[in-house]
Every structure is written in C-alpha cells, then in structure tokens.
Write a protein that binds this DNA or RNA. Structure first.
Lengths: 146, 146
DNA sequence: ATAATCCCCACTATACACATAGGAATAGGA
DNA sequence: TCCTATTCCTATGTGTATAGTGGGGATTAT
C-alpha cells in the first residue's frame, strides 16, 4: 500500500516552490537538487501539476516553475486526487466495478480507511507544510532540506 | 497508493474461513472458487497467514485450512501488519532511513495518514466482517459472495 | 547567436500480481 | 500393507505498471 513517488515528490516540489515564491520562476534543476530527486522524473510530475493547474511554467532562459495559487488555498487532498487518482487504495470504492460489489463487506472497510486518510489530507494545506518547514529551518539552520 | 491484493485477498480468505469454521478444514480450491481469486496466488498468501499464526493447515486428502483463533480476537490491523508490512504507505515513518528525516515535513503528514488508516483497521475485527456478511447473505439469499 | 530552460518521446529497471510445474504428505480403500 | 486421489507446499517463469534514464527539439533572455 505504498504511497506513489508521484505524490511524495509532487508534494515536496510544491513546498519547495512555495518556499521560493518571491524569486524568479524556479527551474526544475534547482528543485531536483534541493529535494534530491531525479530531474527528468520530477519534470514528468511537473507536467501533471501544470495540467492540473497547480503550477505555472515559463519557458526559455530564466524560465521555470511557479505556484499558480496561494499555498493556503491548496489542500493536499486536491493534490492527492491528481497524483494518486480517483481510485486510490482500491478500485471499487466508488462504483460497482466488480461482481461482488453489493455483497462485499471488505469494501466498506477500505472505504472507511480511504475516508480517514483523505480527511487528514483535507485538513492539511500547502501553507501548513511551508510554515512547518520554516520553523524547522530556523531550528536547524538548514536552508534546503524539507 | 493501492492496497495490495495480498491484503484484499487475505482478508476475504479469512472471512470465508470464518464462515465455514464448523466444517472440516477448507481446501484452498473452495475458497478460491467462492472468492473468485487465483488458487495458486491464494495459496501463496495462505502460507504467509500460516506463518503469522492466523490459520492452521492440514495436509493430505480431506485437508485444508482453518482459523487458528476466534474471529473476534483478530483485528484487521494485525492482518495489515503481516500482509502490508511495517512500512506500509512510506518506508520512513518509523525510522531515519533517509537523509531528510529530521527536517522532513511531509513525513509527518504521511504518518498521520497512516495512523488514521490503521485506527479504522484496529476498530474492525474479523467477527465484525463475518456478522456483516451473514446479514447480507440473509438479505440477498446469496450464500457465497463476500 | 548562445545558453538556459521547458517539453516530448522512447527506452530500461524493478516490483507486484499471477501462472505453471512439480514435489511431499496424508486419508481412505483394495 | 500398498495404492491412489487429494491436498498443501515450494520454486520458477511471465505480464504489467511504476520508477527512473537519455536524447533531442522548442522557446526565450541576454
């Protein structure tokens, strides 16, 4: 039941962008270096984030990525829907995809699990992660790691 | 973030066993047929469940599988620990496996997500699923599907 | 013009889900 | 007691999705 790297990297990339919002657009190379993730793979995730409207891109020299919205307006649940997809956890929680749908008792448990997970993500905004990251930076003197 | 089939099949297999506890040991073929899952794959999961002490096996003709404990004493969380493993969701929630451990703000969210999921599973026992299954059988007249 | 940057395509590696083949143990009948 | 069908058990092979790599084209500031 691993969380995909898309979600983990995607989240950290957005936090990184939020921490450097004041500057010029941030190139993928900088994010990748700070966040210790493969550039090319990160770029493929940034495409998804752009298509979903989370980030804006500026092409060419001095270009890069920037947040499209205020971090306080972005919940991790929205991100989750894009990067993990609508049938995260199990494929059958939201529709009768399998023969056992009506009589299935395990599905109800997985649905409760999904709801509980998603509630945590709904409660957490990008801004929460950013302020938490700033606290930690102050405590440790480490500018980069998130 | 899909739940593995190990967990899904394993849970349904145990519910199936609980529903046929009164009889002789239940052969894997019967479980597989009722639960519509590949026999050989099911058997590989039953090995894990045997090693973890959830089921007892009887070899040879008239053999099969039976529950080792009362369904009321088995929470889905215990099953989860065996079939999804200790680092379900992400590998780093319980120890400093990565360089970013101390400063990582996303890890805390994944940890809360994990805790929320697991709480749902702690609250649910095999007996809960079994009684729910019996209700549904009565309602639909369907003896087998779970 | 040049360097920096996003963007697209195709390829490789790894893990999980599932299948196949056979071996070992046991119950029950001849 | 021996034979045979039944069953668990182990090991290995195959398909598919995710993770990650690499090359090169399009765009833009300087």
């Amino acid at each position: 039941m691993k969380l995909t790297t898309k979600m983990r990297y995607g989240t950290r990339a957005l936090v990184d962008l939020a921490l450097h919002q004041d500057q010029q657009p941030v190139p993928s190379g900088e994010i990748a270096e700070r966040q210790q993730m493969p550039v090319k793979y990160l770029e493929s995730i940034l495409v998804l984030l752009r298509n979903a409207g989370f980030v804006r891109t500026t092409r060419g020299a001095m270009g890069g990525y920037s947040l499209a919205h205020d971090p306080a307006d972005i919940s991790l649940a929205e991100l989750f829907d894009v990067l993990e997809g609508p049938d995260a956890l199990v494929a059958c929680t939201d529709g009768p995809d399998c023969d056992r749908y009506d009589g299935c008792v395990t599905r109800e448990v997985w649905a409760r699990m999904y709801a509980a997970s998603r509630e945590v993500l709904e409660e957490t905004t990008l801004a929460d992660l950013v302020s938490r990251a700033r606290e930690k930076q102050h405590a440790s003197g480490n500018m980069y790691h998130i």
